[in-house]
Structure formats: structure tokens, C-alpha cells
Design a protein around this nucleic acid. Structure first.
Lengths: 350, 350
DNA sequence: TTGAAAGCGCTAACAC
DNA sequence: GTGTTAGCGCTTTCAA
């Protein structure tokens, strides 16, 4: 058990026959040290398999920069991609990246942010839509101020800042525009009775998509009553269940706009189970263009939200010109990718 | 800029009118402190929004435990699930979990492990098959010894220990058994000419699947020449390309066993592009049962490897009975999930 | 160029 | 019970 101690710089210094200070300087290379001594120190470090103690280093100020991404779950393809983007951009800059999963629980989110404060993270990125209630506003305001008080940055990805004046930065997709565009795509194909499947009242991301959907309907001269949104929330299981129920109740629609691709996956399955075929009997579109959306049956027409780029942008923007960034709001564009899940409405459906 | 300093326990102590030691004791609660003083300290900490400095704490010994998972990429559904399992199990124990992505580059893997040593991770989990060459053996032996020297644990998930005596623990699925079972499933359906798509010679995970495939063939009395493995490696793109080429060359097979579900996704697409339908013209099976495998066209028959459980098991086993665990080898079971991508071989295919 | 020494924020002995 | 003190391993003045 004597051996369970890490090799310290003191041992390296002794072996190299120099002082700790010199060893430190040789190792970090930020201070001139004669090549010969330097080599001796490096050699000793290698022989001993020395690794610096990051905590000691952090304590004295020269610590490694750390970024944290917080998502609901890493197994969601969309969140995974965002996390990968953050990870990649952080790695490019030599930063360490920690990812935390909350399962959607505000409590766990708070604990994780707290933890990151303790660990001295310089950048905390919260990802994903939320219901924007008072509790949310209070929580985020607190995060922002606490983080800012120590010079750390907070970025909100796909969720709103409670107040434009708090020291946080938001980066998100233009959900309303994306939803408007894909609804327009359905409308252009001739559909008039389109249901939006996957509403989540209060959730900022979904509300924006619903708004875009309504706007597109209105632009095409449809009355407000033409909108039909089913608030089943997100996830494959929710989409499957809601779609199945809807098909039992009514067939008074020819297309479905799913809140995201996972909902679309569930809807597709429910439609097939009902003996209908897509797109002949029913058209379906999704949102996010996750990898594998093209492997659905049929390949899914959806709106592409470059998730990895969202992650990269979050760190890039936060780290560039920090003073100016605070309070700023960045909107990333999206576009439709057309595959095979949209067709003309079936004959006689009007 | 004066404000960019964190509040320390000294300030909390001053505000509560006690010494730092008392404040520390009240905060961590591991030492009896009168309720009244304790309350004053807690109050002061809350007023100041104090968070302990994890680095200082770690330095003095009482640091937070940290686990690290290292995967190729978080966007792979399989790896994401493993990471989620590790994260969940770590969180359950109050540990922090860091995930690192290497992109399959040994160099980045080494850097990341080094980093984790600096950060004082107590548990490092390396996930995914590898080609087991001398460089690999040397690398892993070094990780194991270095980690062990400080009492940290190394677990290898789905990759071999270079030597049973090194202080590392391996947890993996029984790839050979899984492959044998699903090949048997194809055989039972009447297929005799089955190609294995996605070999990666030297990769331990794939080699085991190929071995299981060959074993099943042999068990059914087929000659060794009946085996046909295409070494195209993993990933959807590889599967797509290899399958397309194969179909151009020959149709002398009625089923394909894809190295994993992503390869299967590519293969399915290539088969459809060639005007064939699954399973009428061709049967396809995959490996891993990723979420969404049931949304493929058609829903994929595959072998389920409980990935999240693999991640959880890795930390559970590593943390339980540590002395005994080192050097042990754990095999997790898998099973087939039957969906709709397997049928009888087409008429006259014999 | 190098060494001695101070100190980062915290906890754990060790007094009182 | 509570305060004082001594470090944890490192970097960085400050002298020499």
C-alpha cells in the first residue's frame, strides 16, 4: 500500500538533481531553462512516469480549462451530436470536456451545475428546450450570476435566457422558421389537413415549432381552426401511442408533422400498424434529421438542424470576445431535407 | 475584475464568526458541531453562495471520485448507451463521470488516459473492440500499471487484456455466442449461403463474431468454404458501399450477417437500391440492437447486446471487491431479437 | 540560471 | 466544542 502514492514533482527534481522550482520550469517550458538541465528533468520525469497533479496545478492557478455540457440524455441522437460538437471544439483548444445527463430533472441539473462550479469549469453549456416557468427563470438567473462571478461563462442552447441582461449567451436554431418551411413543404404537396404531433405546452422549442406551423398555415390562407396539435410530448413511445390513438379517432388529416424525428419514428410505426402506407395514404415529416432518419421506412423528410455545429458554435462564440458575447443571441439556420415520406394527399381526401 | 474570485471557506467562517476548521466541519458534517453554530455556518454559506473548491479538497484527500469512459465517438448509438450506463451508475454512487471521444485514434486515447491520471480519476473504462497488436498491448499494459500504481482501476470493455496478469478487468459480451446464435437463426430459416459483411481483421470484437459465424456454419455441416466474409469494416457508409459492390459481383448468397446494426442499415439501403426487397429476396441480420433498429426497413432482426448494462456492469464490478476484481474476466450474455428482416431464401435459390 | 519560500483553499491532527 | 497549525503538490515571486 506504500505504493499507492503518485509520483510528485519533488521526486522528479531529486532524481534530476535540481530544485522543485527548476523542475517545474523545465516541465512546463514557460521559463528559460538550459537545454542540458531541461533534458535531465524530462528524462527523470519519463523514468518515473510522472504526471502532474491537475488539482494542485488548478489550485495555484494554472489549471486546465474545463467545459461542461449538460443534456437530458446522451442516447438521444440529437443531444449526442451536440455533445460531440462541444467535445470536439473543446478538444481542439486543449480543453477538457465533461458531459452530464440530467434525465430532464431540474434537480439533477442544479446539482450538476453546482458540481461544475466546484470543479472550476470555465464554461457551462445547457442544452435543450425547457418549460419556461418561474422556477426555470430563477434557476438560470442564479447559474448565470454565480458562474459570472468567477469569470465562467454560461451558454444556453435551444433554451431562452430569462432576461436579456443576465450574463448568459444563447445559441439556438430558428425553430419557427424551420417549422414554417417544412409545413410549407407539406402545403405545397397539396396537404391541407396536417396534424402537429408532439406538442409540449410551455416547452420553448416545441412552442416555436408549433408557432411556425401555425404561421405557415395562415400564410396559405387557412383558418386558425385548420391547426391541429396533439400535445403528446417527445420520444418514440409518445409518438407511437399518440398516433395510434389519433388514427382510431379520426382520419380527417392527410399529413403529420412530428415534433422531432423520434416522434416521427413512432408515428411511422403506428401508421404501418394501422395498415396504412407512407406516403401514399399519409405523409409524415420530422425534425432534426438525426443520423438514421434516412433509414426509416420510408426515408424521412425532415428539417436538418446541424446539431454538431450547434455544439461547436456554443463554445466558439462563448470563447470569442467574451465581454461582448454575454447577453447576445445567436440563431443558426436549418433547412429541409427531402426524402420519401411526403407525397400528394390520397385521392378523394378532400 | 476584483470580483472574479471565488468565495472561500475563510469568508464563510468570518461571516459566521467561527474558525475555518469549524466552518469546514459544519459544512461537511462529518464531525459533531452544535446545531446552532452549524446553522450559522450553513446560513453564511448560503448567503455567500459558497461552493467548495473541488481542487483544494482533492489535494487534501477528500476529493470527489471521478470515473472516465473512453469511446470512439458518442454519436454511435452503441457507445452512447454504454456511456449512459457508466454515467448512470457513477451518478448513483455520487461519482463524477467524464466521457472522452478518441475518434479511434490511439494517440488521442493515450492523451486522454494521461489527462485522467492528472485529474486523479479513480476509474478508467476503455470501450470498444481494437486491433490487438504489439502497440496496443504495450499501451494498455502501461495504462494498467500506471493506474494501478495510484490505486486507480482500469476496465476494458469489449477489448482484451494483453495479459491476464496485468491489473485490469475485462467486461464484455460473448460475441462468439451471439454470432453463432444469429447465424443459426439464418440457417434454420433455410439459408446456406450467408455472407458476413463488416469484418475488420485483427479487431477482437469482429473476429469473435466471425468465429461464431464460422462455428455455426460448421455445426450445420457446411464446409469451411461456405463462409464468405467481406472485410469492409464498420459504419453505415462502409456497409452501403460494400453491399453495393457485392451485389454487382455476385448474387450467390441469400442472406447477410452485418457486423453491426449500422452496417446493416447501409446494407439494407444498398439492397433496396439494387431493386431487391428484404426479406423476400434477401435476408439481413445485424448486431447490437440499437434503438431505431426496429425502425429500419424492414425492422431488423439482430442480436441484443444490453449496452447500458455493459456500462453499469463495468463500474459495478470494478468497484465491488476491488482486490479480487483485478484480472477477472466477465462475459455478459446476449440474445436474438426477431423482427422482420429474415425470411426463407427465395425460391429456386438453391 | 537557479533555489528558497510563500501560498493557492481546504481538511485533519493536535491542542486547548 | 473549537481554534491553531501543518501540510496536500504545485507555480511563482524574490533573492542570490
Amino acid at each position: 500500500m506504500e505504493s499507492k502514492r503518485r509520483v510528485t514533482i519533488r521526486e522528479v527534481a531529486e532524481r534530476a538533481g535540481v530544485s522543485m522550482a527548476t523542475a517545474s520550469r523545465a516541465l512546463s517550458g514557460n521559463h528559460p531553462v538550459p537545454a542540458a538541465t531541461r533534458a535531465r528533468v524530462l528524462r527523470a520525469a519519463r523514468d518515473l512516469d510522472y504526471v502532474a497533479n491537475a488539482h494542485a496545478r488548478a489550485l495555484v492557478g494554472g489549471g486546465r480549462k474545463m467545459a461542461a455540457v449538460v443534456v437530458r440524455q446522451v442516447t438521444s441522437p440529437f443531444y449526442a451530436q451536440v455533445a460531440e460538437g462541444v467535445e470536439a471544439e473543446a478538444a481542439d483548444r486543449g480543453w477538457l470536456c465533461v458531459v452530464g445527463a440530467t434525465g430532464g430533472d431540474p434537480q439533477r441539473e442544479m446539482e450538476f451545475v453546482q458540481l461544475m462550479r466546484e470543479e472550476g469549469a470555465r464554461l457551462v453549456i445547457l442544452v435543450g428546450g425547457v418549460v419556461e416557468d418561474d422556477a426555470y427563470r430563477e434557476r438560470v438567473t442564479h447559474y448565470a450570476q454565480a458562474l459570472d462571478a468567477t469569470g465562467a461563462r454560461l451558454v444556453l442552447c435551444g433554451r431562452p435566457a430569462p432576461d436579456p441582461d443576465i450574463p448568459a449567451l444563447v445559441v439556438e436554431f430558428d425553430n419557427e422558421a424551420g417549422a414554417r418551411a417544412i409545413t410549407g413543404h407539406l402545403l405545397s404537396a397539396g396537404h391541407r389537413r396536417i396534424v402537429f404531433l408532439g406538442g409540449l405546452p410551455g416547452n420553448t422549442a416545441l412552442d416555436a415549432r408549433v408557432a411556425g406551423y401555425r404561421a405557415a398555415l395562415a400564410e396559405h390562407g387557412l383558418p386558425a381552426e385548420a391547426a391541429h396539435v396533439v400535445d403528446c410530448g417527445l420520444g418514440r413511445a409518445a409518438g407511437l401511442r399518440a398516433m395510434a390513438e389519433l388514427l382510431k379517432e379520426t382520419r380527417e388529416f392527410t399529413a403529420v408533422f412530428a415534433g422531432d424525428d423520434m416522434v416521427a419514428a413512432g408515428a411511422l410505426r403506428a401508421i404501418a400498424d394501422a395498415g396504412l402506407t407512407v406516403p401514399d395514404d399519409m405523409s409524415v415529416v420530422g425534425y432534426n434529421d438525426i443520423p438514421l432518419a434516412e433509414d426509416f421506412n420510408p426515408p424521412l423528410t425532415t428539417v436538418r438542424t446541424p446539431a454538431e455545429e450547434l455544439g461547436r458554435a456554443a463554445v466558439r462564440i462563448a470563447l470569442r470576445d467574451p465581454e461582448h458575447a454575454a447577453g447576445s443571441h445567436h440563431l443558426l439556420g436549418t433547412h429541409i431535407v427531402v426524402r420519401r415520406s411526403v407525397g400528394a394527399p390520397p385521392e378523394g381526401s378532400h
